[in-house]
Design a protein around this nucleic acid. Sequence first.
DNA 1: ACCTGAACACCGTTCAAGT
DNA 2: ACCTGAACACCGTTCAAGT
Lengths: 185, 185
Amino acid sequence: MAVSARRGTPLTPEEIYNMALRLVDEVGVEGLSMRKLAAELDVNPMSLYHHVESKTALISQICASQGLRMELPGEDLPWRERVRLLAHAYRSLSRDHPNMWRYVHSHPEIIASRTGGLWDVLFSILVTVGVPESELRRTADVLYGFVTGLVFAESAGHIGQGQDPREADRTFETAIDLIIRGLGG
Amino acid sequence: MAVSARRGTPLTPEEIYNMALRLVDEVGVEGLSMRKLAAELDVNPMSLYHHVESKTALISQICASQGLRMELPGEDLPWRERVRLLAHAYRSLSRDHPNMWRYVHSHPEIIASRTGGLWDVLFSILVTVGVPESELRRTADVLYGFVTGLVFAESAGHIGQGQDPREADRTFETAIDLIIRGLGG
DNA sequence: ACCTGAACACCGTTCAAGT
DNA sequence: ACCTGAACACCGTTCAAGT
């Protein structure tokens, strides 16, 4: 029955993850501290360490679970459409939690496993397009770099600053068009 | 004549910048601390603040000065060649100080001024290609996102992990080819 | 002018002690 | 089992005092 003195219920990992993500949304990963997180949960800072190995582990768990939320396009669509949907899926992830993705982007070790189905879909698209076996890996890497880079530049404000959102959308379409044309579309 | 007790000569900003960049190369921006920097310079941590406003200011000065090192391609070259050279120039910057550029990438405020001549060259290339006035800004943004994203994914190890360097070079060429084809080349 | 030590308000994390 | 306070080894930065 040993329960927090300050709260009625015991801590759960989910509670911790959710609050951590909320804080990251507000103040960024750099702005998140175990102590602030604990305060927000109305708990002693050290209690967290019974449910979470470390701050780094906490962050990577959140990131991993977010990565799984990506909505991958179905196999039956024309490849141009699949490219478009895949790019938009990634962009939409990044827009839900920009602070988190900005961090992930510069800490690759956090999603060392190449984000689940994304790569399978990408390869399958390229096969459809007719990219030769020997170029598959290279081309997939290039497209990954392009799309993540664009999404990132957008979310970090490197590009399209102070424009209305519709303009940002159009820039993104321009990018997809360029990719499709580059792939031979 | 009031001079450091621990060193013969007074501190200079250049000394501080150089050592800071060296440390960033070794341990990353996150790993750099004013205290370590001071220790490395054999100086009291607080002495630094007579030459540098803050850690953030120090970092952004280093970044800015590095940005100026980019070697821009000449106006007289064919546009395909200029695209290629511009991309390589950016890549080579990032390879000289990967830790620093990984940081810049997620801290756009640091190079708020759109990295000098890069954008002029980019626009001029696109005009040559025949991109209509109304699409210039959008297309430049897209290319910027693509190239920085690719360079970044490469330097962060998101793509091309554990490959021999020649393979990375070929991936980069694949990227440039795709861009050129996408631009209508 | 330039340097310095002590101090302040923070970190992540360990550890021994509590229930 | 779960929680806790004190403590350790760090941060960036301010400030008053030294030469």
